[in-house]
Design a protein around this nucleic acid. Structure first.
Lengths: 239, 239
DNA sequence: CAGTGGTCTAGACCACTGG
DNA sequence: CAGTGGTCTAGACCACTGG
């Protein structure tokens, strides 16, 4: 329950608790009203509203004036396309636990497209990504062999590769061009993602360049559409 | 200045005013503290904080505990609805001819989700979009009836609706939030798009709001993945 | 009409930053 | 230390939804 003695703010404790209750089915379509939550947690309405708006911001809940606060049926993980976020960051931002399983790491002999792009041999890393122990995405990263060799020394099962590139290898990632589409998965990938054979997934393909305009990474991710959507916010400046 | 008599909430008025002052250089690196803003606008701290957090959420401002609230270095410059919105422009940029066929325009009786969002009856426009005479997308626009009635007078078969809204109806579109995913089409939509029944398409769903935070449009587009992909260019801000 | 979220006030104490 | 944002209380009135 909620504990005012803990150093964790009440509204964070409440929003975590609500999220758990939504995930385990305590609340289905709708959560209790703000006044009811005040009673339940013995806090003020401000605190309740702060907890709820965190979940609204994350896309978990949706308020309707005069009716109540409802659980949204959107896929639980939403990636913001306005910034270069890693899978790990994205999943953590949604309040879930990010996991990873290394499927392959080594030279990629048949990656002609990537060999062409980099102008040298290619090192590839393939990982299955989890959110709260559910498989969500297969990510295939391709690097020039000269970079890939240096990545080998790290624990690729857990690492955030972009952190390794930037902090350990001193490569500054500056730009990415990304293409988003949908495709049918191979039978093999379907098995790994625990979805039906020939199901469709969201795909994101991108090339990342460093500050000198050199191609550093070629990436392709396949995402389960029931678990992951891309989210873009555009804004026109006033004036 | 701020006017409590207006039907626009104070925190919205304040956040608009702050944004203008940031854009015209009244504030450079830093905005006044929350206590100072209380004085300036004669409102409570809650109201100030609500106004400020809207701008933080949008990436305009950044708070640092114990130091103050700072203007973000590079306001994310995002091309307004360029690749996202104007289908016509996107297709023309690819060197193809954009076309359009009006499938339906009129009141939408069953659009419960949209009626809920707008709080009034709903007008809908459905168009099939072509590139070089190949059907590429079905776009469904939903508007509050009060706006939709005014759209009726124009040639919806050809018009760029966003131009009509802004130039003819004087509505200022300021924000859009878009979700990109994939789904299976209905048999009917498959026929219209000239693809196999139950094929998968790319989908984009968005809500556009005006300067007062009112929802102006609810949109859903279904795109043939063999003809259309989403392309996003991201730059990492160099902290 | 009772119930909902939306807005707002006027306080209070805490945790953090810098001189 | 004075000043900052972070958290929280206990109220109030409004606007909207549905029966």
């Amino acid at each position: 329950m909620i504990n005012a003695e803990l150093p964790i703010p009440l509204h964070i404790q409440i929003s975590n608790q609500l999220e758990k209750q939504i995930n385990n089915g305590t609340y289905r379509e709708k959560i209790p009203s703000e006044r009811e939550l005040m009673e339940l947690f013995s806090v003020s309405r401000t605190t309740v509203r702060e907890a709820v708006s965190k979940l609204v911001k994350e896309g978990v809940l949706k308020k309707i004036h005069g009716k109540g606060t409802f659980i949204s049926d959107k896929p639980p993980i939403q990636e913001w396309l306005s910034s270069l976020n890693s899978f790990t960051e994205t999943v953590k931002n949604m309040g879930m636990t990010a996991g990873s399983r290394l499927l392959y790491a080594g030279e990629a002999k048949e990656a002609h497209k990537q060999i062409n792009l980099f102008g040298e041999n290619v090192y590839t890393i393939v990982r299955l990504r989890y959110a709260n122990n559910t498989p969500v995405a297969i990510e295939r990263h391709y690097y020039p062999l000269s970079i890939g060799i240096n990545l080998q020394n790290f624990d690729l099962d857990k690492a955030t590769i972009y952190d390794l590139l930037e902090q350990e290898l001193s490569i500054t990632l500056t730009e990415a061009e990304q293409f988003i589409s949908t495709e049918r998965v191979t039978r093999e990938d379907a098995g790994i993602l625990e979805i039906l054979p020939h199901a469709h997934v969201l795909s994101a393909e991108r090339v990342i360049t460093d500050q000198y305009g050199r191609s550093v990474e070629w990436y392709k991710g396949l995402y389960r559409p029931d678990m992951y959507v891309f989210r873009v916010r555009t804004k026109r400046s006033l004036l």
